[in-house]
């Protein structure tokens, strides 16, 4: 897990669903880079042409289908972190399992422009203010640090 991610935010509305994150017409592919080319295509045709390393969303980000292709596509498109008021639960688990940090932040609506996200300390440095979120702990932190669930399980097995 990177310690500091600094970028201009990409803002989304509430209830961004996994059908718009990666439409079904691309689901016959399991290739991350192919999926990444089409990330958010039905939400915003310009997504790939604007800064989107940090997605800032409203509530219920990632609702709908369980397709893991959604966080795979976002990651492959260069998204480093998603900050939202709330997440749909399957998307949240999928993202952690893929090593994509997803942050629940009640004040997500306030974030705009260039910000710096400090994952280890739980701080978002925004213009004129610092917003705090509970940093990852326990097994979720260990999974993110390993780079995802599969890497985490492999590392655990190697230790035994």
């Amino acid at each position: 897990m990177e310690d500091k991610i600094e970028a201009v935010v990409y803002k989304c509305k509430d209830n961004v669903d996994t059908d718009v994150i990666i439409p079904a017409r691309y689901l016959s592919s399991t290739d991350a880079s192919e999926l990444g080319k089409h990330a958010m295509e039905d939400y915003d045709k310009e997504f790939s042409n604007v800064p989107h390393e940090i997605i800032v969303a409203g509530k219920n980000f990632g609702c709908g289908s369980s397709r893991e292709h959604a966080p795979i596509a976002l990651k492959a498109a260069g998204v480093k972190v998603v900050i939202a008021k709330s997440f749909a639960r399957i998307f949240f688990r999928n993202s952690i399992n893929l090593g994509l940090p997803v942050i629940v932040c009640k004040d997500a609506g306030k974030l705009d422009g260039k910000i710096a996200v400090h994952l280890q300390t739980g701080e978002i440095i925004a213009p004129g203010e610092i917003i705090r979120f509970p940093p990852f702990t326990g097994e979720i932190k260990e999974i993110l640090d390993a780079g995802g669930l599969v890497a985490f399980i492999k590392a655990k097995k190697a230790k035994v």
């Binding site: 369980s66 893991e68 399992n97 599969v150 399980i153």
Partner: peptide
């Protein structure tokens, strides 16, 4: 309940889930 593919892989390996 619904889960993802990676998590399913972990279930197939262990037979358990949190």
């Amino acid at each position: 309940t619904g889960i993802g593919s990676t998590e399913t892989a972990a279930v197939w390996a262990t037979g358990e889930l949190w």
